Amino acid sequence: MAVPLYQAKAEFFRTLGHPVRIRVLELLEHGPCPVRELLAAIEIEPSSLSQQLSVLRRSNLVSATRDGNTVVYELSTPDVAELLRAARRILTEMITDQGELLAQLREPEVREASA
């Protein structure tokens, strides 16, 4: 029996639910990148990066090619980069809305303090 679409989507978002994986995907938005550059940018243990890259490979979000001793990763589709940009837009709106709410919440305190 096939997995329901909502369940497949939940699994997809669980795959994205790790800060290192998100950071790797963000770095790969700019094009293919060798592991050594990912390590330098993220500053984690090589074994931890390897584990997170493995998860991303299994989910087909990234692909890897070998160039001699160097493994180079890239996004499997430009849609991944678009998803990250959409997440940034959504977060920006959420933070803006929270800022407006915070300003509204502080208004009575300002009035009470000046009275």
Rank of each mutant, 00 (worst) to 15 (best):
A87N: 08
S76D: 10
N60W: 04
A40T: 14
L75P: 04
V110C: 00
D67A: 09
S48D: 11
A87H: 13
I42G: 12
V72I: 15
L91I: 06
L39K: 08
L39P: 05
T92V: 07
E93N: 12
A40D: 14
S63H: 09
T77G: 00
V71A: 00
R66S: 14
S59H: 12
T70V: 15
H30Y: 14
T15Y: 02
S47F: 14
A81E: 03
R23A: 04
P19W: 06
A115F: 11
E29R: 15
S76G: 14
I44Y: 11
V80N: 01
A10S: 05
V24G: 02
A115H: 11
E37L: 15
T65A: 14
E109T: 03
A115P: 01
V3D: 04
C33Q: 15
T92W: 10
G99F: 08
E74F: 03
R111T: 06
D97I: 06
A103E: 10
E107N: 12
L27R: 07
N69E: 08
C33R: 15
G17P: 13
N69I: 07
R106K: 08
A2P: 10
S63Y: 06
F13P: 01
A103R: 12
R58N: 15
E100Q: 11
A113Y: 06
N69S: 12
G68Y: 00
R36V: 12
A41R: 14
V20G: 03
